[in-house]
Amino acid sequence: MAAKVFESIGKFGLALAVAGGVVNSALYNVDDGHRAVIFDQFRGVQDVVVGEGTHFLIPWVQKPIIFDCCLQPRNVPVITSSKDLQNVNITLWILFQPVASQLPRIYTSIGEDYDERVLPSITTEILKSVVARFDAGELITQRELISRQVSDDLTERAATFGLILDVSLTHLTFGKEFTEAVEAKQVSQQEEERARFVVEKAEQQKKAAIISAEGDSKAAELIANSLAMGGDGLIELWKLKAAEDISYQLSRSGNITYLPVGQSVLLQLPQ
């Protein structure tokens, strides 16, 4: 009797374990920021996209494929050539996410590793196309325009694969030969500017000397004319200036305590 009881209990426990396993395999979770696509063994990938939460499926017949739909970062380096055939190293910083409603198509046409398959190829394609329109100098001076053009073209191209992108150009350098040539040209330009400044400075000093000499000559001519015409006013002006200078020097001397009022400080200057 006891054996039959234990046998019944064992069968019941086994049934519970099997039922628990079935129930557990029929449940799956979709975390925050994720979406699920259901693969059915008989009907293939379903068009329905499952949102966040706990859901049921048919055990051993259906399988959930979970996709991360949050923005994810990725650096994509590309080596290409400019319009004047200069090697250009460019790195793009890309934030990407799949369009949730297009996940069934993404899974069937590309796969779960869609970012590895799509982003490097379309990034290389777009960068080569855009950079080839500009020469090396334009790539330096029009970087903002080029970055915007790459972003627009790449965003449009990615949309055909069901992807949303936010693109920025973070790195742009040239080959060693071109970089050295640019540096040499900059040094040459700086030396030319320095030589031009030295020449202009010398010319300005020459002009200043000529103007000063012409002024001295004109002043001597005016003085000579004034003396020839008997102009005593100019002599009196010189005497006053001389007296002012003498008074200033005497006032700074430690041996002079005062200047006599009413006496001439011109020291008998000739009339």
Rank of each mutant, 00 (worst) to 15 (best):
P64G: 05
L163M: 07
E193S: 12
G53V: 12
I79N: 12
I246Q: 04
V18H: 01
T160R: 15
A181P: 04
V118F: 01
A2W: 14
V150Q: 00
T123W: 01
A184M: 05
I94Y: 04
E200I: 11
I235Q: 02
G13S: 09
E244K: 15
I140K: 12
F67Y: 04
D84M: 11
Q263R: 11
G53Q: 08
L16Q: 08
R43C: 00
V61Y: 10
D32S: 13
A3D: 07
G51C: 07
E236F: 14
L16W: 01
V99S: 06
A228I: 09
W60P: 05
L169G: 07
V5Y: 01
D115S: 10
A219I: 13
Y107K: 10
E125S: 14
S188K: 14
P120T: 01
I122S: 02
S147C: 10
K185S: 11
I122T: 02
I110P: 02
Q249A: 07
E177S: 12
G33Y: 05
Q142I: 06
V30H: 00
K206V: 13
L259D: 07
W238I: 14
V131G: 00
L240M: 12
L250D: 04
R157W: 11
G51P: 05
W60V: 06
A136I: 03
L154Y: 07
L165S: 04
D153K: 12
S8Q: 04
L119P: 01
Q271I: 05
L95A: 06
D166H: 14
L103I: 13
I256R: 05
L234T: 06
M229S: 13
P120R: 03
T54N: 05
P120L: 00
T91A: 10
